[in-house]
Simulated scan of single mutants.
Amino acid sequence: MMKGRKRKSGSLTAQMLDPATLEQIALWLEGAGVASIEIETEDGRLVRIVTGEDAALRDAGVDPVAAAPVEPHSVRPAKSQIAGHFLPVHPARDAAEAAIGASVFPEQIVGFVGIGPLIMPIRAEEAGTLRACTVGPGDLVGYGDTVFLIEPAQ
């Protein structure tokens, strides 16, 4: 029987917060196209690891979250409910559920997120006009990411 690698002394949190470990995690994330992650440690601390352009902003003293474009109050987001790849058209269909500029109603499916064989819908939260799609076909989206912008009906 093979034994697992012996763990270094100290808590798992201390090992994870080691600068060399954080640097390796950041390299893996950047290689996977992930801009940032948040990890809650066993003692309840929240650690945010930022890569790429966001890291450059952070190193320059700019908060990447504060630097992100803010959606105007006149539009509402349609967000992804899972992480996966954006699909503007369901794989079993020929046409998109809704086109930019089209009217949408509450709970209408406007796109999809796929993870392997699992396909989850993205739904409009309220009636309005579909104004923009913030990602491209096949782009990786995270849980809660804004995928569409909808101008509410008047």
Rank of each mutant, 00 (worst) to 15 (best):
Ser80Trp: 06
Ala55Phe: 12
Asp139Tyr: 00
Val141Tyr: 00
Lys6Met: 14
Ala32His: 15
Val50His: 01
Cys133Asn: 01
Lys6Arg: 15
Ala127Lys: 03
Thr134Cys: 05
Glu23Asp: 14
Ala83Cys: 10
Pro88His: 01
Thr21His: 04
Pro106Val: 02
Leu57Arg: 06
Ser9Leu: 14
Ala55Thr: 11
Asp145Asn: 11
Val62Cys: 05
Ala99Tyr: 08
Pro91Glu: 07
Gly101Gln: 11
Asp54Thr: 05
Gly101Lys: 06
Gly142Gln: 04
Ser36Trp: 03
Val135Arg: 00
Ala66Val: 14
Met1Tyr: 07
Val147Pro: 00
Leu46Phe: 10
Glu40Gly: 09
Met16Glu: 01
Ile100Cys: 09
Ser9Asp: 15
Pro77Cys: 02
Ala56Gln: 07
Met120Arg: 04
Pro19Met: 07
Ala127Gln: 05
His90Ala: 09
Glu151Met: 01
His73Lys: 08
Ala124Gly: 08
Glu38Cys: 11
Val113Ile: 14
Ala95Trp: 04
Arg45Gln: 15
Lys79Phe: 02
Arg7Trp: 09
Trp28Asp: 12
Glu30Leu: 09
Gly114Leu: 04
Thr21Ala: 12
Ser80Met: 07
Asp139Lys: 00
Glu125His: 02
Lys79Asn: 10
Arg131Asp: 10
Ala55Ile: 13
Ala26Gln: 13
Ala55Ser: 11
Glu71Asn: 05
Ala26Ser: 14
Leu27Ala: 15
Asp18Phe: 12
Phe105Ile: 06
Gly4Tyr: 13
Thr21Asn: 12
Ala83His: 05
Val47Gly: 00
Ala127Tyr: 04
Ser80Thr: 12
Pro121Val: 01
